[in-house]
Nucleic acid binder design. Sequence first.
DNA 1: TTTATTTTTGAATACGTATGCAAAAATTGA
DNA 2: TCAATTTTTGCATACGTATTCAAAAATAAA
Lengths: 339, 339
Amino acid sequence: MLKNKKVTAMDVARLAGVSQSSVSRAFSENSSISSKKKKLILEAAEQLGYQPNAIARGLITNQSRIIGIVMRNIQNPFYPEVLDKFYSTLAEKGYKVMFINSQNNEIQEDEVSHLIEYSVEGAIITDALLTSSTVQKFTRNGISVVLFNRYVNDSLSSAVVCDNFAAGKRIGHYLIEKGHENLAFISGPMNTSTTVDRKNGFREALAEHGISSFLTENGLYSYEGGFAAAEKLLKRDKRIDALFCANDISAFGAMDYLKKQGIRIPEDLSIVGFDNVAMSDWSSYELTTWHQPIDEMVNDSISLLLEHINGDIDAPEIQRVEGHLVERGSVKDRRKGFS
Amino acid sequence: MLKNKKVTAMDVARLAGVSQSSVSRAFSENSSISSKKKKLILEAAEQLGYQPNAIARGLITNQSRIIGIVMRNIQNPFYPEVLDKFYSTLAEKGYKVMFINSQNNEIQEDEVSHLIEYSVEGAIITDALLTSSTVQKFTRNGISVVLFNRYVNDSLSSAVVCDNFAAGKRIGHYLIEKGHENLAFISGPMNTSTTVDRKNGFREALAEHGISSFLTENGLYSYEGGFAAAEKLLKRDKRIDALFCANDISAFGAMDYLKKQGIRIPEDLSIVGFDNVAMSDWSSYELTTWHQPIDEMVNDSISLLLEHINGDIDAPEIQRVEGHLVERGSVKDRRKGFS
DNA sequence: TTTATTTTTGAATACGTATGCAAAAATTGA
DNA sequence: TCAATTTTTGCATACGTATTCAAAAATAAA
């Protein structure tokens, strides 16, 4: 409850001796207001502690200046970095962030309703998907959406993703070119486009070297999952000499399993991750990994979203961004003449 | 821009053959509306895809149903866990989250303005402080605030903190009781109440054992900082046999430095952290650490905030929550008869 | 059936702001 | 100085909803 009555533009108007509409103009850009009057108004506002009410403004302009960020897996270190970057870039552009922590692979109806209810101007959805009915709901309510790091092949939603297929393929080639022969894959959940594309690229690379199959275990994109997946894989086949993990945090789990088993990295077994989170550079891991260019992906996502919001583009589009390999200490060069 | 005209309660009213106020009543609890009419209205709303407008509602009720969360150090794994918990508990209570990523030790004027502008009902400020002028600004605008994990001794702001002094003291006793004699401390920024209290508690414990001083280096609450601080400490005094790090992530950095130097943990040097983030349990670290009860702290913070919001309490209060030690593998029992 | 009481409902209004429109004021040019 | 033109400003209004108040409708009791 208010201890003090809320200060409004009407109060400022009275003190400054002008109208409420003049006060509004003093706080707007591109408004016609004399500098003398503007100065008086701003001084009165300062004295009264006036703060324009974004809710009232949003009602009349239909511009909430709010972007919704729907995020999953906030405890995967990749996503705090993504959130950090999204926040700072949106703040630069004058947007506020409504944060929605999601739990499911597909954004839920109530999450959609919340975003609509608050008239967010756009939404970034990270690591989750939209059904066609939620796409329609957003569209009908004039809310632009961009998927981050995931996409759906239904031509309904814009997305910015790392080129996961090319990355998986490049990693496959890299490991084989470094002399590995018995490769395995630790995936994420198999219903995610990130895992499917990384695995397919990896498969294609191996096929090009005459390797028609490889073992896969689901590491659930988590430390514990990677740990368990490594254990399963090594029980299935002790000849495995390289692991490609579909994300870094499951790679860390796999590495810790290997270390616990006395299997030396990279002497006995090489491992590659995906994401290049800060921890990949920590000396306990020194993980060779695929760098996802978060800054570029975030910038592209926001540019795409703002183009949709401003009506500059209408048709959905998927932008693929290329990452690059970061070689650290977790891959051995097994070719003859190297050690 | 809207492709379709926004559906409002007026549209639903026309389709259902009732008034706009009846539509509003159908979507409210504790309103007088016949069940027959309510059913008709809800069906019409479903058919039209009507979504009540929270912005309009907020304007008239002066209840935005938004809580601001101002967070720093989102990339410290402690804070994503905190955010996760805050989000789910607030969502259960029907609140939306406006997220503000902060960079400074003290919340900034523009951050305060953003929260006021959007009429957030309350704000949780994690790992940052308020000046007395920002406290006044919040108060004048009817916004309740609770500090999380930090507090100011000015009696102006409510806070929920771990009892850092008691924890630091307990850790000091623990290390000494385990036979360590040359202890050092890796702090966070010295202007943070968390570091000051943890250090003071540690100091008191050591004083009670006749140890009047110990070396300190600032680990900046970061991995890199912990790594560098460990290096500096070990250069200053090679006899150090235990490190108390003011948070886990700087402990991980310190541990990686020690490993790189071939200093075995805990055989050669014991280390204790603070927070008990998930990585503390990873087999590469197995860090003995002080567990901060995030669930309890978050629940208490939200309870306290809601009591302020509802006017049930007015005076600021500081609630201290106790954590507990989690013993893993990074502390050696150095007493005679143990090995 | 009529009167009294209770419940439901719609009309009117307010919330605080932005903006269209026209009047007032200021400026410019003859 | 006056007329023409431009700029500034205030009035009125709308944005979409919740709620007060009073009328209408429904229900209960005589």
